[in-house]
Design a binder for these strands. Structure first.
Lengths: 245, 245
DNA sequence: CGGAATATTATGTCTAGACATAATTTTCGG
DNA sequence: CCGAAAATTATGTCTAGACATAATATTCCG
């Protein structure tokens, strides 16, 4: 008798509410499945589905025989979106263009090898790009692309699509690593971004892998006076709006 | 036929592998459930569980009658951990202490009201803290705590536990909002963090709500020359290591 | 031929059982 | 009283069905 009732979702939400409201603090034992079965008048499978979802979202822990307990709050986290420049500009209603400042095949040096945790001497395509919204430069990007993993990149001129979008469309990735830092812009960077030398900038490093093979590294510099990166997060995995619930 | 076999997980992993390897690019139709049932010799419930997990992780989309298809890659994201200073120091094997630089009850001014999206004039406890690892200041934090939501904070001296940890332990939160920026340290901030005036710093703003009520805002300033914030992320929700798979 | 009614299909949710397994409790023997 | 063996319990996984629903195919009729 189903198709829409979504009873398991209702169970999930009611337990979730009690946890988030503080009624059930961390460590509280959740009613055992067979009690919930009696309470909701459904089968154990339905209850189990609700509890599984709560486990997946990190709100509860289930242990055989010991029962289910409310999990300790996880360390706060923010989700940092790394937008595609063209898409972001389109949504904001501004024009977008980019310029390729540099393009060369290089061998990976010792500094890069350390960052990427890869033996040096791998052949990389090195590309420097500046991204421009309505004639205002918004980001400066230096990118390394592993030629062994993406040989086709040699045939791409990047005259219509910037390297980041080109890779995102073509090359699947299964793992990524990010680092975020603040740096003072040097003379070259300041000129490219049309800001004062020494101005604080956000540097986002992003490295991606596919099946254990290094694909690409992007080091993107954003002027720091604009609040480019905003993340929202609700405990642990739910998709609630902030300011609700 | 149960208890450990985890067949649904195996099905999930095999489909996942085909998607991540590029064998099934976005838009590819996944074999319909009854084909998977035949292929794995299990019930439809088991297959459905595997596919539900793939939906939850954003790898596939399921539409009635239309079948399941591989989802378009989501926008890259990084997960930014916001560590508890004491815990982080303990893990790193360094000593931790903090100093309260300022503490006062204030009414929310217009600038704060704009950031928090709350009417001004709310009573807030304002606290400024500096966090120190092995006598090196690692962060400067200015915090506002909503007295209407957390009146008990008036009785807390913060002589043993810093305000952030105190709140995390006591007050549940259900929504948060973050902003990340780079700024040049002013004279006061530079002095507190023992860095050069004008040095680039990372400013992380974090605002939390509970049941629609504003709880607290923390504006934490990190010296930018150290790479404090590292996020890792795998598409969309898996917990794979980078450099594997 | 075009639009409306109908049939088909794949997923969505659910039930009422089953056996498996891990961890705790209880029992029992020394 | 203590430690080992056995019973108990709660979750973990699974099955073979069921009806519901949304979207697409097909048929039918004017």
């Amino acid at each position: 008798m189903a198709g829409a009732p979504n009873l398991h979702q209702r169970i999930r939400e009611e337990i979730e509410a009690r946890i988030l409201s503080g009624e059930w603090p961390p460590g509280t034992r959740i009613p055992v499945e067979h009690e919930l079965v009696a309470q909701y008048g459904c089968s154990r499978m339905t209850v189990s589905k609700a509890l599984s979802a709560l486990v997946a979202s990190g709100l509860i822990l289930r242990r055989r025989r010991a029962g289910s307990v409310v999990a300790a709050p996880t360390q706060p986290r923010a989700v940092l979106e790394i937008p595609d420049f063209a898409q972001e500009a389109a949504r904001a209603g501004v024009s977008y263009r980019f310029e390729i400042l540099h393009r060369a095949v290089e061998r990976l040096g010792p500094a890069g090898a350390r960052r990427i945790a890869l033996p040096a001497d791998h052949e990389m395509l090195s590309v420097a790009t500046v991204h421009i919204y309505d004639s205002v430069p918004v980001a400066h990007e230096r990118r390394l692309i592993n030629l062994a993993a993406v040989p086709a990149v040699l045939n791409e001129a990047f005259d219509r699509i910037p390297p980041g979008s080109w890779l995102l469309d073509r090359v699947p990735w299964s793992g990524a690593e990010h680092a975020i830092r603040a740096i003072n812009a040097d003379a070259e960077q300041a000129r490219r971004l049309a800001i004062a030398p020494g101005a604080a900038c956000l540097l986002v490093e992003r490295r991606t892998w596919q099946a254990g093979n290094f694909i690409t590294e992007a080091r993107t510099l954003y002027p720091g006076d604009r609040q480019y990166l905003v993340g929202r997060f609700s405990p642990p995995e739910g998709h609630h709006d902030p300011r609700s619930r």
